[in-house]
Simulated scan of single mutants.
Amino acid sequence: MIAKRTSRLAILVALPAALALAVGASSQAAAEGTGAFQINLAQLNDSGSKGTAMLSLQGNRLTVKIESEGLVPGQPSAQHLHGSTDGHDFHCPDASDDTDGDGVLNNTEATVDYGDINISLTTKGPTDMKSGLAVDRMPVADAQGKVSYERTLSVSQAVVDHIKDLHIVQHGIDRNGNNKYDFDGAGKSELDPKLPQEATAPTNCGEVQGAAVGSIPVGGVETGTGPSEEQGVPVAMMGAGGVAFVAITGALAVARRRKTAPVTGRTGSAA
């Protein structure tokens, strides 16, 4: 009985302290504007495009890394952080948002779901909404249709506070399969008639999956999965909250050892 009471006491003492530690560390990280967030990009418009992006915050400095594939070879891929920093709930669209039924989900139709441009992910120069169609400053897919992008930007406190409400969209499709943007594939863009619809229609989209999930996978693109787990514990807990997990599991281990340890000082074996 004494061993059981001692084990319960150990758990009860460790649990509040561990949880307080996790909450405190998480609050400190949020206040300091730090954290890493993964985004898995999934195809739109049957493009076959996919990818993985990482958003890393250090204060008001945001580093964006993207590795994607299935884009139009040799063509610029406009890309942006879409969403809201004022509490609106936006998300990635699907084929049902093609309201005019022409078989192409254009940017105007999709914006209803993923919101306006918050940051234009250009390779250089301005990153505001006005740079949304600056195709001359957007990354260009290589001969295999892959894009590798990295840039560190200064962002507003609103972006820091609402980073989990934002998501990445890449643009550019090839409806007629000729490996270039042209007007024959889907006509003119509703955003700018001087551009083909193929150049501005979204090719993929992804939402933030979790915090502190590590770096972009080396040797390939991972898609279609959320945060991985370690022994049943979400990865988000393995950063600051990992200390709490270790403390709790340590208490449970002590309890198990005490429960199974033989009782000495009297005749007979342990019950």
Score class of each variant (00 low, 15 high):
residue 84 S to T: 13
residue 250 G to R: 00
residue 144 Q to M: 08
residue 65 K to A: 11
residue 145 G to Y: 04
residue 205 C to Y: 05
residue 75 Q to E: 15
residue 265 G to H: 09
residue 205 C to N: 06
residue 247 A to I: 14
residue 103 G to H: 04
residue 113 D to F: 01
residue 186 A to G: 05
residue 214 G to K: 11
residue 12 L to H: 13
residue 100 D to P: 02
residue 52 T to Q: 14
residue 64 V to H: 00
residue 249 T to Y: 13
residue 66 I to T: 10
residue 219 G to V: 10
residue 100 D to W: 08
residue 68 S to H: 06
residue 220 G to V: 06
residue 47 S to Q: 06
residue 52 T to E: 15
residue 269 S to K: 12
residue 231 Q to E: 15
residue 263 V to N: 02
residue 261 A to F: 02
residue 209 Q to S: 14
residue 161 D to E: 13
residue 50 K to T: 11
residue 163 I to Q: 09
residue 86 D to L: 12
residue 61 R to G: 05
residue 259 K to S: 13
residue 82 H to T: 06
residue 236 A to G: 12
residue 212 A to Q: 09
residue 155 V to P: 06
residue 171 H to P: 06
residue 229 E to W: 04
residue 55 L to S: 03
residue 120 S to M: 00
residue 251 A to L: 03
residue 208 V to S: 08
residue 58 Q to F: 07
residue 202 P to W: 05
residue 194 K to Y: 00
residue 258 R to N: 09
residue 194 K to P: 03
residue 110 A to M: 02
residue 23 V to R: 00
residue 50 K to V: 09
residue 89 D to M: 01
residue 247 A to T: 07
residue 205 C to H: 03
residue 191 L to P: 05
residue 173 I to S: 02
residue 62 L to H: 00
residue 33 G to Q: 08
residue 106 N to D: 15
residue 61 R to I: 12
residue 154 S to P: 02
residue 149 Y to T: 04
residue 266 R to C: 09
residue 129 M to L: 04
residue 3 A to W: 11
residue 152 T to Y: 06
residue 37 F to R: 06
residue 83 G to M: 06
residue 73 P to E: 11
residue 153 L to T: 06
residue 248 I to H: 03
residue 25 A to L: 15
residue 251 A to E: 04
residue 55 L to V: 07
residue 163 I to C: 09
residue 95 A to M: 00
residue 1 M to F: 10
residue 15 L to H: 02
residue 103 G to K: 09
residue 8 R to K: 08
residue 13 V to T: 11
residue 174 D to V: 10
residue 108 T to S: 05
residue 211 A to E: 09
residue 6 T to R: 07
residue 95 A to K: 10
residue 190 E to M: 02
